[in-house]
Each structure stands twice: as structure tokens, then as C-alpha cells.
Design a protein around this nucleic acid. Structure first.
Lengths: 188, 188
DNA sequence: ACCTGAACACCGTTCAAGT
DNA sequence: ACCTGAACACCGTTCAAGT
């Protein structure tokens, strides 16, 4: 993945961008998504100013880091649209969506907050994924297999907010099951 | 409510403690539980050092501020133990528990994190409430009206983590319903 | 015994000076 | 056009000097 604007970069600028992205992934994986940005600059071997030139805020760096995961989720949603059972497809996608935050502490909270924060880099980055998910969601709703009083974004927000085990960074066992069971129309 | 140690305080110290508590409630209500502690000291009219003498950390101040709400929840749990329907009693308590975080932005997140953080001031402050809730929980579990794979603390943590409406500081409509429905044994 | 505010630490963000 | 690091801002936390 390269710089988000199509504009060509000078060779050293492009190199710094890549270094920062790699360093960002390492630092966020090690210390979570609230780690000092200073560490990222240091690990990439560039000055503070360079970091802020490429990523004007923590959110911008975060978005660049998770871009591959988000786009994977988008294609996964489209694949699951082809599977026969609307409920199973929806539930399967939500499980992947939940698991994919593993490895970057604080990622799902950041996604959950960003989703409804119009204009934020996270909202922009998640828009395509959200659109694909909505197709999956609407199919389940039309099949009347889920309760009718929840919106697609609310569901994404809810699952992103599920508490994580501090050790594994993954959702503690029964939480997602409870939500999925409660989501299903008339209980399971 | 007064200073947590029984030890008598000098008149000016007691007065400062009360000023800080009042100021803390005002500032947390206005700016959320992440507001600068500096503002609290300023609003109370005392120096930084005085604030840190009475409340060694933000958590200590937070705990003093929510103490009345937590103790209310404890007595409410004991009351509901007297009501006939174990499921209705449990669900009713969880609704109060959820609503009570309204007014201090970030409070429920802080409670949710603190609950499982042994040794934290929040964990200590919530221990009696937790104990009373466990009675309510166990009664429902024994009556087999809730699923068997969730623990009392997990349930408290889950409900505390439900996303809030930034405007109202209260849980967005369908979330608690989904969780309660998913919690009920075999769906509702 | 308690209070005060100066001082330090940490880290996000900006910008003047460089290449 | 881009990089660098000094400088500033913000705020949590400590502590020497007071009363």
C-alpha cells in the first residue's frame, strides 16, 4: 500500500512513508494504538516533522495501518452474499469483523468510535466496508431472521465495543454469542 | 460523604476535601471523566498539591464522586432479591445499572475497566455492589432463566461497555435489549 | 499537619532553518 | 519539495518552602 493521494512522491518521501507505516504497525502491535507517536518516528528513523507531514494525526496513521484489514472485510462481505443462508452469512461475517481487531490493542474501540464520527479518517476508510456489510445486513433483515429495531451501523458499533481480554486482545468468549443470540429475531 | 479514612482531618483539610469533591462532580459532569484535573483544582480554589494529597490519582477522585451511585445500586440489588421473578429482577437491576452512568461521560467505561482490575480503587469501591449483584445473578442462574456460560463480572463488564450516545451519555436504544435477550436462556 | 506554586516529565504539534 | 530538530503547549505529578 502506498500514499493515499495519487500524486507522485519524491523518492526519499516515499521511502519515509513506508518506513513510518512499517514502524507504526510494529509500535501499535507492541504497545497498542495509544502508543506515543514519538516512538513511531524514532523507530522509523525520521524526525517529528516528517511524521506529521505524512500523517497529520494519529487517526491518519491508524487508518493507513488497518487499511488492508478493512478491505479484506469488504471482500469477505461480498463473498458471503453468495452463500445461501442469510443468518449464517451475517453471523459469520460479524465473527470475522470481531476477530480482525486482534493484535492491535485499542483498534476495535477506535473503529467503533470512528464509524459514527462523520468526517473522521476512520469513517472514510470504513465506508466501503460499511456499504458491503449493509447488503449482507439488509438480506438478513428482509429474510426476517434478525430483529427489526437495530441499524447496520449500530450493530457494527456494538460488536466493536465488546470488551477485550487484555492478554489476547480478543473478545472474551460469551460476549459475541450473547449479542448474536440477542440479534436473532425472536431469540434463537 | 466524607474522607474515606476514619482519621479526623484538620478543619481546613476537611473543607478542601469537600470543595474538591464538589468541584470534581461539576467538572466531570461538564467535561467528562477525562477532564483535566487542573480544572478541578482551579474550580475548588486549591493548589495542585492539595488535590493530589486528597486524591492521589484520577481514579481516587472518580471513586469518591460515584460512591453514592454505587451504594444506591447495592441497596437496589438487595431490594430486588425480594421480588418474585428472578429474571425480571435481574433485568430490572441491569437497566438501572446501565442508566446510572448517565451524566458523567466516560463513567461506565471507567467502571467497566476498573471492575476486573484487581487492586484498583474502582474495584474496591464496587466490591459491595458486585457482591449484592451476584446474589441476584445466582438466583436467576439457579432458576435456569439465563444462559450458563457467562459469569456475573462478565455481565457487568459487558453492560458497562455498551456504546453511549455522545449527546445524552446514555446507552443507545436497542443495545441493552439485545444483550438482555441474548442473556436469557434459549432466547426469549 | 497541611497548603502552595514552582518545577519537572511526557508527549502532541508547529515552524524556522536547512538541503 | 521535503526533512530536521528546536520550541511551544498541555497537563499529570512531585517537592521544597511555607504557615
Amino acid at each position: 500500500m502506498t500514499h493515499s493521494t495519487g500524486r507522485p512522491l519524491r523518492a526519499d518521501a516515499r521511502r519515509n512513508y513506508e518506513m513510518l507505516l512499517t514502524a507504526g504497525k510494529a509500535v501499535f502491535a507492541r504497545s497498542g494504538t495509544d502508543a506515543p507517536l514519538e516512538d513511531v518516528g524514532k523507530e522509523a528513523g525520521v524526525g517529528r516533522g516528517t511524521l506529521y507531514r505524512h500523517f497529520p494525526s494519529r487517526e491518519h496513521l491508524f487508518v493507513a495501518i488497518i487499511e488492508d484489514r478493512v478491505s479484506f472485510l469488504e471482500t469477505r462481505a461480498r463473498e458471503l452474499l453468495g452463500s445461501p443462508d442469510p443468518w449464517q452469512a451475517l453471523a459469520a461475517w460479524l465473527r470475522v469483523y470481531d476477530q480482525i481487531a486482534t493484535g492491535y490493542r485499542g483498534m476495535s474501540a477506535r473503529v467503533g468510535n470512528g464509524l459514527t464520527d462523520d468526517g473522521s479518517p476512520v469513517a472514510a476508510a470504513c465506508a466501503p466496508m460499511k456499504a458491503s456489510f449493509e447488503l449482507l445486513f439488509t438480506r438478513a433483515r428482509d429474510a426476517e431472521v434478525i430483529r427489526a429495531d437495530v441499524t447496520p451501523v449500530q450493530l457494527l458499533t456494538l460488536v466493536a465495543a465488546l470488551p477485550k481480554d487484555p492478554r489476547s486482545d480478543s473478545t472474551i468468549e460469551p460476549y459475541l454469542d450473547i449479542v448474536l443470540s440477542g440479534l436473532r429475531a425472536g431469540g434463537r
